[in-house]
Simulated assay, not measured.
Amino acid sequence: MGNTRLAGMASARAPPSPGTTTSRCALWHRTTRGSGDGGGRDLGEAGGGASQSWATAAASSLRRDVPAGYPAIPGRKRALLVGVSYKGTSYELEGTVNDVDLMSTLLSDSFGFPSDSILILTEELGAGDSSRMPTRDNVMSAMRWLVEGSEAGDSLVFHFSGHGVQKLDVSGDEVDGYNEAICPVDFEASGKIVDDEINDTIVRPLGPGVKLHAIVDTCHSGSILDLPFLCRLSRTGYWQWENYCRRPDLAKGTSGGLAISISGCSDDQKSADSSGFSSEQSAAIGAMTYSFIKAVESEPGTTYGRLLGAMRATIRDGQGSGRRLLPGRLGSFVRKMIPSGAVQEPQLCSSEMFDIYKKPFLL
């Protein structure tokens, strides 16, 4: 299929200068990991109490009233796509709406998702319908909508494009001591959505035969679903699953279904907006979203291992293009031998272990 959707992408906004990138971890009130750390900054404590409360309700009590504008609970395939631009702020992002538009097209054209089973939340849509504004309440309601009534054979997709941060873990279940969180448009007033809440809302309710893919394009998103297994993949293709469950007494898996997350970077990295990946790309788009769509369209029926490897290669070439002066095969060899900590690396996590080079990627 090539990259026809990427090449034909239009944007109503003026894109940044070619090759520029914008971090999806904005610079806010106070540092997350101490003043000596060069990473992203926390978003302050406004609304922090709400963001740290866990969604402790069991799967049977997840049924809630959802806004009238949301699609009726559909059949085998449904998707929730959230793009947050944070318009009018110093940490505004330009590529998030493009991200969800492209993801919607990919799901419809390549994987047969009916258009009326795809729920999109953006500030643009929210201007005409308040239920489509990506506020904390709406995102939580939409996540409940995504999994509600799911049955064996259902395929669910959650895509979030926006800012992500880390917060100190007080429960002792995080390997690195930090919770990961996504930032709705009203995070300063209502709080962030931490990985514990995401896990409780869209992972634990999944029953046998239900499949969920989360595609998350934010900073610090490696373990954003709090799934128990993270795949370590080297540039030479060697891979192994790492148990990411620090406290076995805290259930982080599903209720029999399968949950897989593909995220923009590891927990200690930043993810970027970029308009400089290729000559065919003219509008801002998330680096991870671009690499994901390109990998899927270039090799239909690919495996999870090949998908992750292709995404990382695209991002290495794109994010380093402005700094890499060695051309051709020599330059390629040097880039492979000398890894750059500044280049984000998409991550794969799962509720169960599998052979990443044998299992086909299917939505």
Score class of each variant (00 low, 15 high):
residue 59 A to R: 14
residue 61 S to Q: 13
residue 63 R to L: 14
residue 64 R to G: 08
residue 65 D to Y: 11
residue 65 D to L: 14
residue 66 V to Q: 09
residue 67 P to E: 06
residue 68 A to I: 12
residue 69 G to I: 11
residue 70 Y to M: 09
residue 70 Y to H: 06
residue 71 P to N: 01
residue 74 P to N: 10
residue 75 G to T: 12
residue 75 G to I: 06
residue 76 R to Y: 04
residue 79 A to V: 05
residue 82 V to H: 00
residue 82 V to L: 00
residue 86 Y to F: 13
residue 86 Y to D: 05
residue 88 G to L: 03
residue 89 T to H: 12
residue 90 S to W: 12
residue 91 Y to S: 13
residue 96 T to P: 04
residue 97 V to K: 13
residue 97 V to D: 01
residue 97 V to M: 11
residue 98 N to F: 02
residue 98 N to D: 04
residue 99 D to W: 08
residue 99 D to M: 08
residue 101 D to L: 15
residue 105 T to C: 09
residue 106 L to Y: 04
residue 106 L to P: 08
residue 108 S to K: 14
residue 108 S to R: 15
residue 109 D to T: 14
residue 109 D to P: 10
residue 109 D to K: 15
residue 109 D to C: 12
residue 110 S to G: 05
residue 112 G to R: 13
residue 112 G to W: 06
residue 113 F to H: 03
residue 119 L to P: 01
residue 120 I to L: 07
residue 124 E to F: 11
residue 124 E to Q: 15
residue 126 G to W: 05
residue 126 G to Q: 04
residue 130 S to F: 07
residue 131 S to G: 10
residue 131 S to P: 06
residue 132 R to N: 02
residue 132 R to G: 06
residue 132 R to P: 03
residue 133 M to W: 01
residue 133 M to H: 10
residue 134 P to G: 05
residue 137 D to Q: 15
residue 137 D to N: 14
residue 138 N to T: 06
residue 139 V to E: 02
residue 140 M to R: 13
residue 141 S to A: 14
residue 141 S to D: 11
residue 143 M to G: 10
residue 144 R to Q: 09
residue 144 R to W: 00
residue 144 R to C: 02
residue 145 W to G: 03
residue 146 L to K: 09
residue 147 V to P: 02
residue 148 E to K: 11
